[in-house]
């Protein structure tokens, strides 16, 4: 639990960026057309009102309450999106990027087979998830990086900003880069456990915001990231224990 809000959350309520949907549409090579006014009821819809065999659209009430009949033209709406959603995705892209950076060191720094496999999986999973988060943000006209509003290590006043929870400090990253073999394995596992624990904090923080996580994609992604990383933490702890018991022999 936090006694205070971490600094990275503080610029949550910055002014919104402008959207450029036409640009995004052009990116897909799609032509945006102003829609012609459409009739409210199509002939099929009219048929539904008289034909007892036509399908119906209904919305139940709360338990014990009656069910409403909705017009056949009913379409879906999305629940509100929270700024916390956007910043979770932006922050997690930065967070994931460091994990991928860490795993990229593995091939040149250790021969440990288990660690190589684990690193390959983390790298594959998190690279793919970065693309998922980028798609989510870009489709909504949001910047794909927090740093669009300021340099990564500075807050809006130009003061050094803390990293996302669990991220390794520049000193920790440097130490990791310099280590080889068993020392690298140890630093990597300790570092990645710290890193993954930070992701769990970020997920918890997301759902601690009223109105956050109502979007199905972010809800599923955040929940899955939490479950997967929780499992990987245990795998890494088991590897650490195994490594230390082997050293004692």
């Amino acid at each position: 639990m936090f006694s205070e809000v971490p600094k990275w959350k503080l610029d949550r309520y910055r002014p919104r960026t402008l959207h450029s949907p036409i640009a995004s549409a052009m990116l897909f090579g799609i032509f945006l057309a102003a829609s012609a006014p459409t009739a409210l009821f199509s002939s099929a819809a009219r048929a539904q009102q008289t034909d007892p065999n036509a399908p119906v659209v209904v919305q139940p009430g709360a338990p014990g309450q009656p069910t409403k009949r909705l017009p056949p033209t009913t379409k879906g709406i999305l629940p509100p999106r929270s700024q916390a959603d956007v910043e979770f995705m932006q922050g997690m892209i930065m967070h994931h990027s460091q994990a991928v950076e860490m795993t990229a060191l593995i091939p040149s720094h250790t021969q440990n087979k288990d660690l190589r496999l684990l690193g390959a999986k983390i790298s594959s999973s998190q690279s793919d998830e970065i693309k998922l988060m980028q798609r989510w943000l870009a489709a909504r006209g949001e910047s794909i990086s927090m740093a669009m509003l300021g340099m990564p290590d500075m807050d809006t006043k130009g003061q050094p900003m803390r990293l996302m929870p669990g991220m390794l400090t520049p000193e920790q990253m440097e130490a990791l880069r310099k280590a080889k073999g068993p020392e690298f394995d140890h630093l990597f596992l300790v570092g990645m456990i710290q890193h993954h624990n930070g992701a769990l904090i970020m997920v918890k923080d997301l759902f601690d915001n009223a109105g956050a996580g109502q979007d199905a994609d972010i809800f599923n992604f955040a929940t899955d990231a939490d479950n997967t990383q929780r499992a990987e933490i245990r795998i890494m702890q088991a590897m650490l224990e195994k490594n230390s018991s082997e050293e004692k022999r």
């Binding site: 002014p15 640009a23 870009a138 910047s143 300021g150 809006t156």
Partner: peptide, 13 residues
């Protein structure tokens, strides 16, 4: 003019 063509509300450092 791509998807990132969004002006930040505050000038970038």
């Amino acid at each position: 003019g791509r998807i990132f063509a969004q002006a930040p509300a505050t000038p970038a450092p």
